[in-house]
Design a protein around this nucleic acid. Sequence first.
DNA 1: CCTACCGATCGGTAGG
DNA 2: CCTACCGATCGGTAGG
Lengths: 222, 222
Amino acid sequence: MDVRAEILRVATRLFATRGFDGTSLQSIAEEVGIRKPSLLYHFASKEQLRLAVLDELLARWSDVLPRLLMAAAGGEPRFATVMREAVGFFAEDPDRARLLVREILDRPDDMRVRLDKYVRPWVDIVADYIRRGQESGEVHELVDPEAYVLQIINLVVSGVAAAASLQGGLLPADSERGDPTQRHARELVRIARYSLFRAPEEGEEARPPARRTRSELRANEE
Amino acid sequence: MDVRAEILRVATRLFATRGFDGTSLQSIAEEVGIRKPSLLYHFASKEQLRLAVLDELLARWSDVLPRLLMAAAGGEPRFATVMREAVGFFAEDPDRARLLVREILDRPDDMRVRLDKYVRPWVDIVADYIRRGQESGEVHELVDPEAYVLQIINLVVSGVAAAASLQGGLLPADSERGDPTQRHARELVRIARYSLFRAPEEGEEARPPARRTRSELRANEE
DNA sequence: CCTACCGATCGGTAGG
DNA sequence: CCTACCGATCGGTAGG
């Protein structure tokens, strides 16, 4: 039906999986079910397609990020929830994370401009909340607010990208701690929290996103 | 003189910068100062060249990692030093980090096997030290040892890769906190430490690492 | 380590 | 949205 949208969908997946240079227009057209020149009717060049894919990605990020980061103003009690949402945003469609990482590697100059425009303002806002937390004593004094936020974003995006590619390969299955993806996500949230707050509320971040059993909690507390 | 080594050097840099698919044998040969068929005399195919580049990378990693991780057994007092060395290993030649990240994205199946062989044993060793730290009360109970180590490795490698590409673009210069690279490195070490130890020794990681770190690195290379 | 050359595939265009 | 086709470049080979 909507061929243009379908092209974008397929291109996003292939760019994320094989990279921009590793993906031919031919292979995209094939999967969409059209010929290459037809694809070039919708997008004037491969470069235009790349930009369209990236724009769509960052547009969604821009929808979600503000709400997410504002919620971070809730301080410690809201923290784990916000973090889990952030991880969820990327984990739900890991191509986003893989594409972001690839673009940073492949087109650093383009990406620096984009990140400066889309991400930086929100980094500053969260950094201010952190500074306020430092004044109130809730947050560790030695936290470097901007650097902290960027490190955590990096941790989330790169973590999801790597996990998507490796499919949690390095973490052995552990019946007590849940599947590898859950373990990674949980530990990520815990690291972010313990490195920020002076007195993190114990046990909170051990809760899996959806359902959770007593035995899982107990396993974590051992 | 040693053409083969020169090819490897150039290829490593170009693969890291433009990616494997984005780098032609022609462009490598040009920079080395030979013709393409001459390059193919040293490496039978582009794929062979890729494997050789990767082998060299992981061989050095294997030299450094063990010593590094064993030092982690020193507990909290040794922690910041070990972390700074790890960051230094990648920061000193960011192509290593960029190449690793690229390979994980481009050849996840190959990399899973390699990481399982080269990295996993050391992850297990450090995880055991962490568990001992948990028993002694030095380390937070809720740390998931394996997941923690993998997240920190991810943080170091991805952080250096991103910083190398973006050239610290998102962090503004701040005369009080030092240059962006230093700020990132310092905050990274702080995050790793505060999320691990129950009572991190305040102030330690705030020390400007300029001269100290470099001389430590040099001492390591001997 | 070179010149000369190969088939395959690339992104893109002409023209309908 | 298609068929037909373009020049450029790709990885790789023959032969010296």
